[in-house]
Design a protein around this nucleic acid. Structure first.
Length: 407
DNA sequence: GTTGAGCGTT
């Protein structure tokens, strides 16, 4: 006869009995079956305060002697308290799963930017829609010349929606703002994987950095960074719900925008990797954890998206307070080096909150990046995803409107 | 020092 644990989301609401294991522990997976995204338990102690329950290896342990007793335990969600009121969904995957697309934000690509426009120009223009927490003009690393496009990210979904609903005249040119393609396919997860694929990682992100960052969403059981560095990593959560809830989002880690998607599920079917081809341009390559080997990289021949559970259609990101952290890190890492006039590299402006507003000049001296780039990278990327340049089709419609060219 | 559809070196 298995022991049952009485669990509730709210002390004033009815509880649910959840079976525990032979040894008396309760699996987080059992818990999250009833409370998606749950990461632990707490209970009211005799002293009146709430007391946490020990968590280890994906299992919560009974407070005393293998017995849970008649106590009703309260489920704990990552980071945010169980009282998920209002829009407090940020940082709480369980709450976030209830969010609609219209309630989240994402990096937005700005196409058609005048070559002369700077981050400052973009900031001046886009601030009319609301607070920004990321502004980038993409530039040639050698010459610093703008590539004519960039990215912005708004703090609020309202600002984003307004910005997406119209075209934009920036410094005398019509520009389009769109959701970037890295967010496409969201809502089309193939499986409930516990493992996420973290794209656009930077080399200064350590295993511990990733573990520390993602632990706020749930228990992280593994972090894997391929060596040599390939600009991506894998993070495995104890709870697949947590992993899934993050998919499709952009997160800022150490000042960089990383993209999260599903890790390619391990397939018993040996032909599965062939069907997957080299992986989606922005998705994970086929990867076999046991052999530690990835499939061939290169142009994708189609991403397996059929037969998925389509309950997850978030396209957003979490703002959290990472901007504040990024601010401190940017300063500490010297990204705020003194200005070399007219030689700015592609920089990220972030909304650092009060005191870090528009007067900050993050332009760094030219040459820092290009010195380490020019020779060793013949291609435009080293991620193994293939090269976008010269690729005119095959990834589906971009959904761009035509743009009137003025100058 | 050119350019004008695209999808983010760090």
């Amino acid at each position: 006869m298995p022991q049952f644990v009485s669990v509730t989301e709210d002390e004033n609401e009815e509880s649910i009995e959840i079976p525990c294991e032979e040894d008396g522990t309760l699996l987080i997976s059992s818990l999250s079956a009833q409370f998606p995204g749950a990461c632990g338990l707490k209970y009211r102690s005799s002293s009146g305060g709430m007391r946490g329950v020990r968590l280890a290896n994906g299992k919560v342990h009974p407070p005393e002697d293998g017995q849970w007793g008649p106590t009703t335990y309260v489920v704990v969600f990552p980071k945010v308290d169980t009282k998920r009121k209002g829009d407090d969904a940020v940082g709480n995957p369980a709450a976030k799963m209830k969010r609609k697309d219209s309630e989240v934000t994402s990096d937005l690509i700005v196409l058609g930017l005048p070559y002369r426009s700077t981050e400052d120009d973009m900031k001046k223009y886009f601030s009319q829609f609301g607070d920004l927490n990321l502004i980038q003009v993409k530039r040639d690393p050698k010459t610093g010349a703008s590539k004519g496009f960039g990215f912005v990210r708004f703090a609020s979904a309202e600002s984003q929606a307004k910005c997406l609903s119209q075209r934009h005249m920036i410094d005398g040119r019509w520009c389009d703002v769109n959701l970037p393609n890295s967010n496409e396919g969201v809502g089309a997860q193939a499986a409930m994987s516990r493992k996420i694929f973290v794209a656009r990682c930077t080399e200064d992100m350590s295993i511990d950095d990733l573990r520390d960052y993602f632990s706020k969403f749930g228990e992280v059981v593994d972090v894997f960074i391929p060596k040599p560095f390939r600009s991506f990593a894998f993070v495995t959560f104890q709870d697949a719900h947590v992993a899934q809830s993050l998919c499709g989002e952009d997160h800022i880690i150490k000042g960089n925008s990383v993209h999260i998607s599903n890790a390619a599920p391990k397939q018993k079917d040996s032909h599965a990797a062939d069907r997957r081809g080299g992986g989606n341009a922005y998705g994970p390559p086929p990867y076999d954890r046991r052999s530690g080997a990835w499939g061939a990289h290169g142009r994708n021949t189609g991403h397996e998206i059929g037969g998925m559970d389509a309950n997850f259609n978030n396209i957003g990101m979490n703002v959290l307070s990472s901007a504040m952290l990024a601010a401190a890190q940017a300063v500490l890492s010297g990204q705020t080096a003194p200005t070399a006039p007219n030689s700015s590299t592609s920089e990220t402006y972030e909304n650092m909150g009060p005191g870090f507003g528009g007067t900050r000049d993050t332009r760094a001296p030219q040459g820092g990046y290009s010195a380490s780039w020019g020779d060793s990278h013949a291609s435009t990327n080293n991620t193994g995803y293939g090269d976008w340049s010269g690729h005119t089709g095959g990834y589906g419609p971009w959904g761009h409107q035509s743009r009137g060219g003025w100058n």
